[in-house]
Design a protein around this nucleic acid. Structure first.
Length: 628
RNA sequence: GGGCCUAUGGCGCAGCAUGGAUAGCGUGUUGGACUUCUAAUCCAAAAGUCAAGGGAUCGAAGCCCUUUGGGCCCA
């Protein structure tokens, strides 16, 4: 039981009072109070003004009076604030005991929203022709964090990465290899994904601009890609898998892992499309256009003023939304699974097994990576397309809201950073572009961070050996990058600046991780093992109670984050928790107090903080070192 | 032409879903705190017509409408 206990108690009592007054159920709030207004507040008085024909203040006074006669275990007293709010003060001795005991359990922070049901989270899904840049990282970190949160909320999560290995971007680099003599081995040991993105892809794009005739070559390559048995398709498969391996290396380094890789080329060859095409016709979700500009096409009717969306062109080829529809239906388990599965050739850094789809019949392993619900993480430029898919899936699946598009705004480059990459934007931010070579790669950002944090750690701990420094610098660098990608709202554009975005102070991951290190040091230096068998009445300082309150809010925050698919909620929670600890740290010493009872109580609190912060940071995929 | 997102101290953001108290935080600026469980820390000060206008409400940063600036998507 956590801080929610006292909220529940108050809610129950207020409901009882309401029914005594024979007022039918109204939806009042009972929430953690703002500082200076007790511990819990309710807006109930405002909502009763019409029925009782009294001012909020008078009502609050009446309710407070009645409340004092209720059965209370966790509430010490209620108070009518002149503003009309009804404020409650906790019996902290009991509440602290509840909260801190709970925090020592493995299940701390668990909530049950999913009820064990399966949910698919698809993220990453980057064309396998280039290295991941900082914009992709936002997608990946959002997806990974949401998966972790959903798991905490009792969903069985299947994480998918969709590999678009048969599109235009892949065709481009194949043109480079096949027609412009780019070596298959990158020069001087460059990572293969970087080589394909920085060198081959960008240069070929330049050549297209110079010579429009090359379009023809690309078109032919594209056609050959669709035919799985062609030489080109086999070659492309080899190249894209090498790029993919480089991309996965970057992801794994950031603590991101997957359950299954789904290859677009296989979806195309599996025949899923024709199956879904028939179904769409049958359900009359698409119509054949006889005349007008879309004459001869199969279209989805736009709603209201929206344009019709062409699904199959008059020449019989499917548009690229046509690839998304069968995949979406497959994710929801609406189609018979045409795939077999095999293990990916490399192991992921944690114990999670990574599978990949295959059409080979040889080693027939069937798996199920579909979900009763689906979350697709794609940036909001795809919102229109995703809306069409969502409404189609709503018609396919009886469960409402089964398919969810989790959109987010893009990452742009600050004008200063764009300038360092050779583009003068006249003070404006710049959209990243893989095609133009205007991007900051994830690997390079990690490398810069790693150097910075290694140096800092070395300065603080000259005695440490290199491998320990390396471990700490890694955790802090990954944390910093992940936290930057997650801490603000999904619909805010992140303007990435190579120097400004890599701060290690203030509202950052190192700040939070540092508080964890402080807590660890206290526990390490004390020669006792913290227990919950302590005198909780000794914890009565404001900073102590504030820290306990924050600890007790963990599961409420997880619930909020999971039900709203809002990873930043957990980021803010970690930060608030760290602030509360730092305030406690300044005001209350823990060791060498000459008072064993008090020391034990505070040790219990410190340990509880450490446990909960670790769990919360784990939801963000951030590791907390014991020293830094 | 149609649609989506966004606007809150100099800069970057939270709060908006579910209207109610004194609009919070970081950074930057100014000043202060390391002989102490680690200063990647803490304390304090200055800094706000919550884009503008209108509406419903006893009450709006939040809800509705209009306009403007910025970003994106479709045509």
């Amino acid at each position: 039981m956590t801080f929610k206990s006292i909220i529940d108690e108050i809610e129950n009592n207020l409901n009882k009072i309401l029914s005594d007054l024979s007022i039918p159920g109204i939806e009042f709030s009972v929430e953690p109070a703002k500082p200076g207004f007790g511990d819990v507040s309710s807006n109930i008085s405002y909502l009763l003004t019409k029925q009782l024909k009294k001012s909020p203040k008078e009502i609050a006074e009446i309710l407070s009076e009645k409340y004092s006669k209720c059965v209370n275990t966790l509430v010490l007293k209620s108070e009518a604030h002149p503003s009309g709010y009804l404020n409650f003060f906790a019996n902290w001795e009991k509440l602290s005991q509840l909260i801190l005991s709970e925090s020592y359990l493995d299940t701390c922070g668990d909530v049950d929203i999913g009820n064990g049901s399966t949910i698919v989270v698809e993220h990453t899904s980057v064309n396998p022709n280039k290295a991941l840049h900082i914009g992709h990282i936002r997608n990946i970190i959002i997806g990974d964090t949401v998966s972790r949160i959903l798991e905490k909320a009792n969903y069985t999560v299947n994480v998918l990465n969709y590999i678009d290995d048969s599109g235009l971007q892949v065709a481009d680099i194949i043109v480079g290899f096949k027609h412009f003599g780019y070596a298959e081995e990158p020069p001087n040991g460059k990572k293969f994904d970087h080589y394909c993105g920085d060198d081959v892809y960008v240069k070929i794009t330049e050549k297209y601009e110079a010579d429009p005739n090359l379009e023809e070559i690309r078109k032919n390559i594209l056609k050959e890609l669709e035919d799985g048995d062609s030489e080109i398709a086999k070659f492309a498969d080899k190249i894209t898998r090498k790029v993919l391996a480089g991309q996965l290396e970057t992801c794994w380094n950031l603590g991101v892992t997957y359950d299954c890789l789904n290859f677009e080329s296989q979806i195309i060859r599996s025949g899923l499309w024709s199956e879904i095409f028939e179904k769409l016709k049958e359900m009359k979700l698409i119509e054949f256009e006889n005349e007008g500009k879309n004459g001869g096409c199969w279209v989805i009717r736009g709603e209201g003023k929206e344009e019709d969306k062409v699904i199959v062109r008059s020449n019989g080829t499917a548009t690229y939304i046509a690839k998304d529809i069968p995949y979406a239906a497959w994710k929801l388990g609406l189609l018979e699974d045409p795939f077999n599965y095999e293990k990916y050739e490399k192991e992921q850094p944690n114990s999670r097994v990574l599978w990949q789809t295959t059409l080979k019949e040889t080693d027939k392993i069937s798996k199920n990576f579909t979900g009763e619900k689906v979350v697709t993480v794609i940036d909001s430029r795809q919102a229109r397309l995703q809306k069409i898919i969502t409404s189609l899936m709503d018609k396919f699946k009886s469960v409402p809201n089964a398919y969810n598009h989790l959109g987010y705004e893009s990452v742009t480059l600050s004008s200063e950073t764009a300038k360092t990459l050779g583009l003068d934007t006249d003070g404006k931010q710049a959209q990243m572009s893989g095609r133009k070579g205007l991007y900051v790669s994830a690997d390079s950002v990690y490398k810069i961070l790693k150097e910075k944090t290694s140096e800092e750690t070395k300065k603080r701990h000259p005695e440490m050996d290199d491998s320990e420094i390396e471990t700490i610098a890694h955790s802090v660098s990954v944390g910093t990058l992940r936290y930057e990608m997650i801490k603000q709202d999904l619909d805010k554009i992140i303007t990435f600046d190579l120097t400004k975005s890599l701060s290690l102070e203030g509202d950052t991951s190192p700040y939070i991780q540092y508080t964890h290190a402080r807590a660890s040091r206290i526990l390490e230096k004390s020669d006792r093992i913290p227990t919950i068998d302590v005198d909780f009445s000794l914890l009565k300082d404001k900073s102590e109670l504030d820290l306990i309150r924050n600890i007790g809010l963990f599961n409420l925050q997880v619930r909020d984050a999971a039900s709203n698919l809002s990873p930043k909620v957990i980021a803010r929670y970690c930060y608030d928790l760290a602030v509360a600890f730092n305030s406690f740290y300044e005001k209350s010493k823990v060791l060498d107090l000459g008072n064993v009872e008090l020391e034990n109580s505070r040790l219990c609190l410190v340990n509880s903080f450490k446990i909960v912060l670790e769990k919360a940071l784990d939801l963000l995929g951030i590791k907390a070192p014991d020293r830094m």
